[in-house]
Design a binder for these strands. Structure first.
Lengths: 206, 206
DNA sequence: TGTACATCAGTGAACGCGCGTTCACTGATGTAC
DNA sequence: TGTACATCAGTGAACGCGCGTTCACTGATGTAC
């Protein structure tokens, strides 16, 4: 009596995405192929065609998952942190970096838009969810700082975003590692800098 | 009388690098191949082997050129800007972003170290030249701010680097574009923020 | 000044590989009647 | 309740492609004597 696999998988789309994520984290975007993904999922190499159309479709689906998890990671950090502007900025930073470190290849992929279909609706929605968190936090920072201009929160959002994005990106590329200790440099505390200025960071002489 | 090309090229290494840079900027790292580079340079496909050994050797040479030009672009900006700490921070920012925008693919490549041999001596030297500029500027900022701790310049360097790197990276990925105007958001003025605090940026009320 | 020889740079054919895509197919499922 | 049929999901062979690498080669250059 041989244990035979049924002809239909049942949930091949999910299985392929799981396989693709593994392939991606092991070998980077360059290693991500329809055939490789099918092989990893133990299925014929033409099977992914039915679910993703072509390679770009697969990569787009992967990026969408990435943005969803990205938003979720930041939301978790925000939920369990101090509910004030500074606490929220720091939470966003932690979530952003945590996601990038735990999902290096997919993080890179998400910010290489040539690789996927940026007009995809699901993807756009997932990305929007992630960036809305940053926007809301920036608005509350602007209020707390007593900024009057209606669009000043944009400057704050850009500042927070560029700083944390640069940090995350450099970190996963192996930079920002202290040569003496081997430890990564800490995340720049851009929230504190905004609220207290550099003199408030404890580094300046009395 | 036929115009025949001599058997030996004379300066094939340079010609191949020029060709490779074109291929790279047109199609990204994925498009960069020994064969494609040889074809672009009008030479047999096995010729690059003599100069670069293998694909990684070619990519490493490209990254080295990238770091040299990167350092040069920042140095130029520094040279023709105000010779004070704030002026130099802004010059570094401008040079960093200018290079990234004008060399999108090579900039991406430089910060994807898996793609090349990071132990290559020439490359390490070129990279060092670029980052020394940032380090020196950060030291002078620390002095100007009256910071006492010997290694505080590191915090400043990290802050400047992460901000400008994040900005450059997001910008070449098509982010940070104002949805209403279509214009890119300006580079965050991290220098001013350091010296004057957010209240000094002209955005705060009263 | 001439010659022999080593070294180097570039050639072109050949190899095997993984890839995306197409195709006719087959097994399974669900739906209309 | 049973049957016919449409639809769907997955198969496996085949295609042509560009790739890195190897190989024996050839043309050109430079150096020793």
């Amino acid at each position: 009596m041989v244990e035979t696999r049924p002809y239909h998988h049942g949930d091949l789309r999910s299985a392929l995405l799981t396989a693709a994520l593994e392939v991606l984290e092991e070998g980077g975007v360059a290693a991500l192929s329809l055939r490789g993904t099918a092989a990893r999922a133990g299925v014929s190499h033409a099977a992914p065609k039915h679910h993703f159309g072509n390679r770009k479709g697969l990569v787009t689906a992967i990026a969408t998952i990435g943005y969803s998890r990205f938003a979720a990671t930041m939301a978790e950090e925000c939920a369990r942190s101090a509910q004030n502007p500074l606490g929220q900025v720091r939470a966003i930073n932690r979530g952003y970096v945590k996601f990038a470190l735990q999902n290096k290849a997919i993080f890179r992929l998400m910010f290489s838009r040539d690789h996927y279909d940026q007009d995809n609706l699901e993807l756009a929605q997932a990305a929007c969810r992630a960036f809305t968190l940053l926007e809301e936090t920036s608005r509350s920072v602007a209020r707390a700082l007593g900024v009057v201009e209606a669009d000043a929160w944009r400057d704050i959002a850009n500042l927070i975003w560029t700083t944390v994005h640069g940090y995350a990106h450099l970190l996963i590329d192996g930079r920002l590692v202290n040569r003496e200790t081997g430890e990564p440099e800490p995340i720049p505390d851009i929230g504190r800098l905004l609220f207290e200025g550099f003199s408030g960071t404890g580094r300046k002489a009395g």
